[in-house]
Design a protein around this nucleic acid. Structure first.
Lengths: 195, 195
DNA sequence: CCTCTGTTTTACCAAATGGTCAGGGGCCCG
DNA sequence: CGGGCCCCTGACCATTTGGTAAAACAGAGG
């Protein structure tokens, strides 16, 4: 793999777990077996590196979700597809979700970069929820608030490994599958009206 | 207020928002109008400061939740009381919840310190859920997983200010009340069987 | 007045931080 | 062979990091 890509991957991992402020270029370079100046050559500055990382992360995440939606049906199955998509990402590239969390902490310019990129998906999701409400499938209420609730639930269950450990659930693949199933039940009950 | 308490408060705020690794003792001292060595006098080291902060945060949080549970009824009303308690904390001292998030990132020793402190509350919550399931009020499934789902939802909705802004919800008090009401509806539907 | 005790500050320090500048090696093209 | 050109590195730099040692301060009690 090209050096710049390796840097990007390592930076994503570190920013997404340790956090941006707690990541040092020296440490990053050491892990990669490369000199710090190599990183600066490719990205100009630490902030430049963050820009590139966010860009990549957002693109990858959006792509992952789009892909999950491609082979999705209608109604509840769409929600299920998205959740499966998120869990697939959570298992394979947890740092991606971690970075999204980190962006919230970094504040204004960064979170804007990300939320602009996700805006179309948020719009689609909101419209979907509105349509489902109109069709009488969902309890009707503010779709944006429903979206935030669902987002929080999925994101938390997918990423809060330490919380899981605290209640005695080990983060094995088997447990993850159980967790996803339980989450789907939880979400379905929360969103859809029983028939 | 005594200096050591002011240090503790400022450190909690910074650790809970910027993060531990991204907080410097110099900056902390500057904000307090005090010399860095004053901090080190009281807490020995940065790590010592973190220990004290975690101790305080965990105690305050546990106290806040206990208080919310004191004047709580049975069944769904108990859940409602806890959610209200968390929201009260989220409004008044958001850094407290932020620090809990931060602990997960810091890993092993710290998260243990916190989860040990919350263990009795987790136990009570789990037993409550089991009783409710046995009584046929809740869909029956693994209470720990339900707990994690509910925790994620509440914590997310209460703390993810940036996500809210991204979907066009400003974090005013009025909106927070709406958000809490919506969340309660969401949670009730997710947990309780319709009657 | 003096001393004892708890607190805060001044003066340092070695290491780590993000970053600049001038090269060095490989490789393709004239 | 000689330039460019891209990628990488070594040597440096000012600033900031967490931390130590010692001195100044303030109050209480004798």
């Amino acid at each position: 793999m090209k050096t710049s890509e390796r840097v990007l991957d390592a930076a994503l991992a570190s920013f997404g777990t340790r956090g941006y402020g707690a990541t040092s270029l020296d440490a990053l370079a050491r892990d990669l077996g490369v000199r710090k100046q190599t990183i600066l050559y490719h990205f100009g500055s630490k902030e430049g590196l963050l820009v590139a990382v966010v860009e990549m992360a957002v693109a990858d995440l959006a792509a992952g979700l789009e892909e999950a939606l491609d082979d999705a049906g209608a109604g509840w199955e769409r929600v299920e597809s998205v959740v499966r998509g998120v869990f697939r990402i959570a298992v394979r590239r947890p740092e991606l979700l971690g970075l999204i969390r980190e962006l919230g902490r970094l504040g204004a310019p960064w979170v804007t970069q990300a939320s602009d990129a996700f805006e179309p998906m948020v719009k689609r999701a909101t419209e979907f929820l509105e349509a489902e409400m109109a069709a009488g499938h969902l309890r009707s209420s503010d779709p944006r608030l429903v979206l935030v609730s669902a987002y929080s639930t999925v994101m938390g269950v997918a990423t809060e490994v330490e919380v899981l450990r605290a209640v005695g659930i080990e983060p094995t693949l088997r447990e993850t599958v159980r967790r996803r199933r339980e989450l789907l039940g939880f979400l379905r009950a929360a969103l859809y009206i029983e028939r």
